[in-house]
Nucleic acid binder design. Structure first.
Lengths: 218, 218
DNA sequence: TAGCATACCTGCGTGTGCGCAAGTTTGCGT
DNA sequence: ACGCAAACTTGCGCACACGCAGGTATGCTA
């Protein structure tokens, strides 16, 4: 692993500075009170540059929580031995990464769940696993159809999104009234591990079929 | 005075970081042992960027000492009331700036005098006053010939260079054997104020003549 | 409800940093 | 004295940050 060169290191440093500044300011002053201008100033860059890194004000905040999760999930999949079913490898990898790195501080989690734009951005962030995961799955299915890996990865991302959505079931959200109401507050509904398992289960046959086609067994 | 904008502020910050890093490293490890790469790394930029700011390894070090002197001399000239002779205004301004801001720490001064490439760079730095000084002189001679101010400013720069050169009379330099020999060490020779006065004196008639032509008195 | 102000986000031109490669100088070891 | 290696300096192309201007959403006030 070679050193990425000064340009790339500064890039990552700026990303990280924006992330931490956004989260800090959101915790200090409330998520809805933080302006892009403030985050940029705290990170030492121009507001324009902020939008070169993040497309919305919320992305930087959620990025502080989800940082690197995309590549870690993919790496976790690649780490499983080829002997385990691909469906299991993916599920285990997702659960592993979402449960070990997911729960920073309770305060941060509440910050995200309490403001609906942040919740939305948090859910959208799960789509980020699609590309890295595509590569990891493709490595396991070298002979599969051209788009098989992409479709499977995108499906996993969608399933994860739904799992997290259910987990963060917002109280008073009439489209899913089973949420736990705590006076306007939003609380996790059930265990994240269970939600992920349930959401990913329906995809297992698709993985099995793709694997079957790739390595037709005797 | 408006805020110069983020881009310009970062520029100046980089300049300053390079200056201080260069001086610090030179004091710590010896001037001849400092590589451009080290200075750049300490300032957080690439070696290529160092040479965007300074044309030689020595310039950053001397720049740490002469920082801003160019504009301050010009400002000091502009500050004198129009009633005083231009020749006196310039001389006073030069002496004022070179004696009040010139002597940082003795250690730094020795650093510069002990290594001849640094001495040379230090002397070359005096040419930097030419452009700002041109503007200041031109402001006092609005009706003079097109190049008069430039010529006078360049002459002042040359005179200053000679004054400083005499002041730093290197021991054992055969071209000027009157230096004070201290076993290979280089020591100031006479007072800087005197040297500047002596070097600038021959230019006074030129200033007087230019002023005369600009404001023909009764 | 209409108008207005604030903040967000994006497109575009320009300035600057980075990386690389080439030519040169400097100092050292053979 | 010669060759070699390390360091310096500069030209060039590319990537990124900045500043500005324009279009949109959101919230407040009259």
């Amino acid at each position: 692993m070679t050193t990425p060169g000064l340009r790339e290191r500064k890039r990552q440093a700026t990303r990280e500075a924006l992330r931490t500044a956004a989260l800090r300011l959101a915790l200090e002053h409330g998520a809805s009170k933080v302006r892009v201008e403030d985050i940029a100033a705290a990170a030492g860059v121009s507001p324009r540059t902020y939008n070169n890194y993040f497309a919305s004000r919320e992305q930087a905040i959620v990025s502080a929580v989800t940082a690197g999760r995309e590549t870690r999930v993919a790496a976790a999949v690649a780490r499983r031995p080829p002997t385990v079913r691909l469906a299991d490898a993916v599920t285990e990898a997702v659960v592993e990464q979402y449960t070990t790195t997911g729960q920073h501080e309770l305060e941060t989690l509440l910050l995200i769940t309490t403001w609906s734009p942040l919740r939305k951005a948090f859910l959208d962030a799960s789509a980020g696993i699609e590309l890295p995961l595509t590569a990891a799955i493709a490595a396991r299915l070298p002979d599969a159809g051209a788009h098989t890996a992409r479709v499977l990865a995108a499906s996993v991302a969608a399933a994860v999104r739904i799992a997290v959505e259910n987990w963060l079931q917002p109280a008073g959200d009439d489209t899913s009234p089973e949420g736990f109401d705590t006076g306007g507050l939003v609380v996790p509904f059930g265990s994240l591990t269970d939600q992920l398992g349930t959401a990913l289960a329906p995809l297992a046959p698709a993985f099995d079929a793709a694997e079957e086609q790739a390595h037709p067994e005797a």
